[in-house]
Amino acid sequence: MPLYTLASKKPFPEQIRFDIAQVITDVHCGLTGAPSEFVNVVFMTGYSMRRGTVLGVNGNVRMGGDRTAGLYEKLNEQMHTRISEAAQLDKSKVLVTLIGIESNWVVEGGMVLPFPGDEADWLERKNATHAAMGIGPVTDYV
């Protein structure tokens, strides 16, 4: 969490998919302070989009803690601009929707996710727990 799903009719080239995901990670982490390891991006293709839309972006993001309504507005606005640029699309062709989720409704890294703003402590506890269990960092990326 966050989980951003991106739906389009035609698949974007691999490099553009990769670039869009980097932009989403940059914007999300830059504005919210969340660590990049939290950010998941999924591309779904083959879907007929609503009129005028080429790319539909839905983001499920943690709510509460130090996050304000203004921050979500900014997040939506910057996501919209930066994703449009990375996808090489006019802004009017991109639809961004964010849905707030309670942080304690999700477990990642073997632990219940922290409230927004408490990430540093959480990461420290998680790394200590993993180290005590002999678990190193993720290595089997594709």
């Binding site: 998919r17 995901a21 990670t25 990049s36 390891e37 991006v41 293709t45 990326y141």
Partner: peptide, 8 residues
């Protein structure tokens, strides 16, 4: 190559 986590 359709899912990215932590930039990878």
């Amino acid at each position: 190559q359709h899912t990215i986590t932590d930039r990878r």
